[in-house]
Design a protein around this nucleic acid. Structure first.
Lengths: 221, 221
DNA sequence: TTGACATGGTGTAAAGAGTACACTATGTTG
DNA sequence: CAACATAGTGTACTCTTTACACCATGTCAA
């Protein structure tokens, strides 16, 4: 038992995990095994341990649910409405993470929990205020496409310009002009040719590119 | 006494309170009366009550220290390094607030606390990780000048274009071209002429303007 | 072997946004 | 009424963004 002279809220981290699959922006949800909201889908997350800081907590949750580490993770916003959790006062520090499609490999669902990927436009009803968290994360992601190199975080080691363009189109949900896109993206100088090309299907092979600094997200302009 | 099955961190809100005075960007600091960091300057802030949400907590702290309410307040970032407070685990949700110079009127310092305004470039050593919080808030403010109408939050009911320009120059710490500034700021359509003019000193009087929607900060472009 | 197919790759012109820059207007005060 | 101080105004140039269409090059099937 832990006792305090004043009441303390519980603090959790929740993570909005984005990935791209089948030309769709998807996010990871977990079906809750216990009350409250038993059986409802929710964001992965959990209580912050006393010996870990907030980023570490989010990273740990992420690793536990997806098995991935070393991916892009950014603090989003802190949600603290008084009654957002019916059990006790819970304040959650929300994060969002981007996972390149090739790193994707869900853990075998451990306890009786179900885990699933859902298209951003096909979300089920979510527990708590998680719908708000998702909305904000999505907004932030879309905004950051424009003024940062965050989209590179979705790319595998090697990729073609068409694939990169498809990433932008999928997230923005609108077509992008091919020539202007290439001019723009190359001018950023964030990617470089590998020298290799990829041949697949009955058509001209595509040059392969790689991200110059895969661990940095730069602010543009 | 309050007891829990698992340890809970304490949660506070801290507020970086900005204002403009004497052509300088200033912020409000409080001299700590007790340990830890007794006698050191720190951001106003305090523990989140169990019956108030995070914004309310920040707003309450702000009102208690400055007597102002109804000003612009935005969540900045949540700081949760394990040892940022030597007493116990304390996670702080940082906010920043902008106060128009005319609303400024410090409360009479209540308890033996000293309260003061400091130029952003003349800050004393701060308690905890408050220096980091201030740095981030300042960054955010400067960034938002460019892509939002946040600067209007510093303006009194009526003001001249020269005064508004001075606000930008003070925060950016660089001169702004008068003609381009006027063209730009008017094109935003966020302000309108009052029809009055202000005469002061031995020179041509200036048109007065007001903010059209004083309670909205719009994202530009 | 060759033609159909599918995707890759490329440039230019026009519009719009941003920047640099200097003089006249109009009030007050001595 | 002249000196002064700040208010107010426009244009030309550069840079950025946008719109837009055709040739290149590989595979595969007839």
């Amino acid at each position: 038992m832990y006792t305090y002279a004043y009441p303390h809220p519980a603090v959790t981290t929740d993570v909005v995990v984005f990935t791209l699959r089948d030309q769709e922006l998807k996010l990871l949800l977990i079906k809750r095994g216990g009350d409250p909201y038993k059986g409802k889908w929710a964001l992965p997350g959990g209580f912050v341990q006393m010996d870990e800081d907030l980023d570490s907590s989010a990273r740990r949750e992420l690793a536990e649910e997806t098995g991935v580490s070393g991916v892009y993770l950014e603090q989003l916003y802190t949600f603290g409405a008084v009654n957002r959790d019916p059990r006790e006062r819970v304040i959650t520090v929300a994060y969002y993470a981007l996972i390149p499609s090739d790193k994707l490999q869900l853990r075998a669902a451990t306890d009786a929990e179900a885990v699933g990927w859902f298209g951003i436009d096909e979300l089920p009803r979510l527990a708590f205020d998680h719908r708000d968290i998702v909305r904000l994360a999505h907004q932030r992601l879309v905004a950051k496409l424009d003024y940062s190199t965050i989209a590179f975080q979705f790319m595998p080691m090697e990729f073609t310009l068409s694939e990169l363009q498809a990433v932008y189109q999928t997230i923005l949900q609108e077509p992008v002009d091919k020539r202007n896109f290439r001019k723009w993206i190359l001018a950023l100088e964030g990617i470089e040719e590998t020298g290799e090309e990829r041949r697949d299907g009955a058509h001209r092979p595509a040059m392969l590119y790689r991200v110059k600094h895969p661990n940095k997200v730069e602010i543009i302009k």
